[in-house]
């Protein structure tokens, strides 16, 4: 049985994965138009500028959408049905992720619930996941 997919950084994405290894969610933003963006690439998708910089995001997000997958990808067979989520980062961009500390049920996964980033080792990298934050965390742990 194959293992779970492990991302392999490229030179352009290495700072993102270096950030994850340091428990920081790093995004890029354009220094000409100011717009933050994800996924990592050395050009602003809004204005085409090469003048972009890395910054550390707040790690706060909300749940934008998800599915609960019943046909596991390689390496996921032991997880049971699992959620594949897309979160809305506080800074604007969205990213795919997994949810930590929440049962994979429609009742537990409520769109727009507040989340915060957490990190989990996967192969040679650290993978950004999201867990309930603040009052939502208390709710989930009750």
């Amino acid at each position: 049985m194959a293992d779970k997919a492990v991302p392999v950084p490229t030179p352009e994405t290495q700072p993102f994965w270096d950030g994850c290894a340091a428990d920081e969610l790093r995004l890029q933003r354009c220094t000409d138009c100011g717009k933050p963006y994800f996924y990592p690439r050395p050009v602003c998708p809004d204005c085409g500028s090469r003048n972009v910089e890395w910054f550390t995001a707040s790690g706060r997000a909300t749940l934008y959408s998800y599915v609960i997958n019943h046909r596991p990808a390689p390496g996921f067979a032991d997880d049971g049905p699992y959620a594949i989520a897309v979160v809305q980062l506080e800074e604007g961009p969205r990213m795919m992720t997994s949810l930590s500390g929440l049962p994979a049920t429609p009742e537990a996964l409520v769109l727009d619930m507040p989340l915060e980033v957490t990190f989990e080792p996967r192969g040679d990298v650290s993978l950004p996941l999201f867990k309930p934050s603040g009052s939502a965390a208390t709710e989930a742990n009750r």
Partner: peptide, 28 residues
């Protein structure tokens, strides 16, 4: 490919073909 953008930023979360990806917008 594990170096491609989907390989780095989607596949690690357990995507496995269209049933796990094409479907994600629907709940929103």
């Amino acid at each position: 490919a594990p170096t491609s953008p989907p390989g780095q930023f989607e596949a690690p979360y357990g995507t496995f073909g269209p049933t796990t990806t094409f479907t994600i917008p629907a709940l929103r």
